[in-house]
Design a protein around this nucleic acid. Structure first.
Lengths: 191, 191
DNA sequence: TTCGTCATGTAATGGGTTACATGATTAC
DNA sequence: GTAATCATGTAACCCATTACATGACGAA
């Protein structure tokens, strides 16, 4: 199975709804708070080019006609191969750790993801965060020992942020579970 | 003024307290939740080498003696030039946007930073986050329009996280201000 | 004696940004 | 006419990771 990097996935996702120019893609990606808040054209255009080469997307340059040399707007759209890849990814969504970067992108496509996969993604993320929390907890003693109040405060705030995200995930997981018809399960108990 | 990247700054900061091996540096940096949670040796050792070349740190290999070919533990310590650079950075701390990456590292050295600089760093960070919040707010309407509940929820959670960090900063800023003897100022009012 | 951890390093590669270069279109 | 924004692209660079290679030391 071909591997799909996060940017590719995000582009596939954003183009599924409708064809867009590179410029528009960037704007829409920039709207999210996520990893592509400030994606540069130096990343975007080469990526689009590559994806065209791989057959995932098609580039529609409107009317090269009347031999105007003017390089003009190009509309990118998903090809069938692109759709196939996207749906493969949508059904797939590993629990592997690289998924951490992709979480936002995956989440933003939840409306096109089946609920079992959604649950898998949410739980994967939760597990990784809980692990991080645990690792950080082991350092807490050490941090307190070298007492520097500011460092401790930074650490505390970091932990708090992650804890809150775990709570958020727990809420979402519960919602997914009950929507799935199951009993809510004792989420949040193992923390 | 020579520019100092975040990693260099972090290393300078961690070596000020006491000399350490590369391995120990990595462990200590890994303890934080910040940018170097999982710094690789492939980054660390070349950086140390470079810093030795720049004269910022010195490498003490214990007793190359008795011509044993054994490459052994190397202790890195700050040179006078390294101390000078660190203090320069400590007093300096811009409000420029690259500072965003460096925030955690700067903060972790607050016990060695004067309170005016601390305030400048905290306010700089707050301003940049508030800006981000504002930008994201403009997109809120658009996000709501394309209604997808999950995307909206992701957005909402992102905003909430940033808002909380702003509140945290406000608290710290107030504390710094009152420690400075000033009146607390109406922090938080311009949000 | 073997496993885990301490310890140092290089080469290949990846994935991004910055700076640069160009030009069309729209609004004032 | 001129400024802002839309729009596309390349080249140079930066900084990090991964995979690899090596080896010491202590404990079971």
């Amino acid at each position: 199975m071909a591997k799909t990097d996060v940017l590719t996935l995000a582009i596939l996702g954003i183009l599924e709804t409708s064809p867009l120019h590179g410029y528009q893609i960037r704007k829409q990606l920039g709207g999210e708070l996520g990893p592509f808040r400030a994606l540069s054209y130096g990343s975007l255009y080469p990526a689009l080019k590559r994806m065209v080469g791989e057959g995932l997307i098609g580039a529609d340059a409107p009317e090269e006609s009347t031999r105007g040399s003017r390089r003009s707007k190009i509309s990118y759209r998903l090809t069938d191969a692109g759709k196939a890849r996207l749906h493969e990814e949508l059904a797939n969504a590993g629990t592997s750790s690289w998924e951490d970067d992709a979480f936002d992108v995956r989440f933003s496509m939840f409306d096109r993801t089946d609920s079992v996969t959604r649950l898998r993604i949410l739980e994967g993320r939760r597990t990784r965060l809980a692990q991080r929390l645990e690792d950080a907890g082991l350092n807490l003693r050490r941090v307190r020992e070298r007492q520097d109040g500011y460092t401790a405060e930074l650490h505390r705030h970091g932990l708090e942020t992650v804890e809150r995200e775990v709570e958020w995930l727990d809420r979402l997981i519960d919602e997914e579970r009950s929507a799935l018809g199951g009993k809510p399960s004792s989420a949040g108990a193992d923390n």
